[in-house]
Computed example of a mutant assay.
Amino acid sequence: MTTLVVFDIEAVPDLGVGRRLLGQPEDAPDADVRRMLGERYGRDGQDPSTVFLKTPVYRIVSIAALYAKRDEGAARGL
């Protein structure tokens, strides 16, 4: 029997945390906050609006798992 386990986590930048880290007001536009986070925490030479940020600046929005078993003796050719 073969067993497969797959995990997937989806996360997005936590702009509320970003506002607090950057000292921005709550009504600061999301796009501006995202760009400023990228400028401060992103790697040099990357677009600050799309760069992958450090993990603590993200919030998890979805966690999924797949658990599958394959019986080696089952019919083949399907």
Score class of each variant (00 low, 15 high):
1 M>H: 07
1 M>A: 09
2 T>L: 11
2 T>C: 05
2 T>K: 12
2 T>H: 11
2 T>N: 11
3 T>K: 09
3 T>Y: 06
3 T>C: 03
4 L>T: 13
4 L>M: 09
5 V>M: 10
6 V>Q: 09
7 F>L: 06
8 D>C: 13
9 I>S: 13
10 E>D: 14
11 A>K: 15
11 A>L: 12
11 A>M: 15
11 A>N: 10
12 V>N: 04
14 D>V: 07
14 D>I: 07
16 G>I: 14
17 V>H: 13
17 V>S: 12
18 G>R: 04
18 G>V: 01
19 R>Q: 04
19 R>H: 04
21 L>K: 04
21 L>T: 01
22 L>P: 11
22 L>K: 10
23 G>V: 00
23 G>T: 00
24 Q>N: 05
25 P>S: 05
25 P>T: 04
26 E>S: 15
26 E>Y: 13
27 D>Q: 15
27 D>N: 15
27 D>L: 15
27 D>E: 15
27 D>C: 13
28 A>G: 07
28 A>H: 08
29 P>D: 14
31 A>R: 14
31 A>M: 11
31 A>N: 12
31 A>W: 11
32 D>Y: 06
32 D>T: 05
32 D>V: 07
32 D>L: 12
33 V>T: 15
34 R>W: 09
35 R>L: 07
36 M>H: 08
36 M>F: 06
37 L>D: 09
37 L>I: 04
38 G>F: 02
38 G>K: 03
39 E>G: 03
40 R>V: 00
41 Y>V: 02
41 Y>C: 05
42 G>L: 10
42 G>W: 12
42 G>E: 13
45 G>E: 02
45 G>T: 01
45 G>S: 01
45 G>A: 00
45 G>V: 00
46 Q>T: 12
46 Q>D: 11
46 Q>C: 03
46 Q>H: 07
46 Q>G: 01
47 D>W: 03
47 D>C: 00
48 P>E: 01
49 S>F: 01
49 S>N: 08
49 S>Q: 08
50 T>Y: 01
50 T>V: 02
51 V>Q: 06
51 V>H: 09
52 F>Q: 09
53 L>C: 09
54 K>W: 04
54 K>S: 09
54 K>C: 04
54 K>F: 04
54 K>V: 07
55 T>K: 13
55 T>W: 10
55 T>R: 14
56 P>I: 10
57 V>G: 10
57 V>Q: 14
58 Y>F: 15
59 R>E: 11
59 R>K: 13
60 I>F: 10
60 I>A: 11
60 I>G: 06
62 S>C: 01
62 S>D: 03
62 S>L: 06
63 I>M: 03
63 I>G: 01
64 A>C: 02
64 A>T: 02
64 A>Y: 01
65 A>C: 08
66 L>P: 00
66 L>E: 06
67 Y>N: 12
68 A>D: 12
69 K>F: 07
69 K>R: 14
69 K>E: 15
70 R>C: 03
70 R>Y: 08
71 D>A: 07
71 D>T: 08
71 D>G: 05
71 D>P: 04
73 G>C: 06
74 A>E: 12
74 A>I: 02
75 A>Q: 10
75 A>S: 08
75 A>G: 04
75 A>R: 11
76 R>A: 12
76 R>C: 02
77 G>I: 03
77 G>D: 04
78 L>H: 03
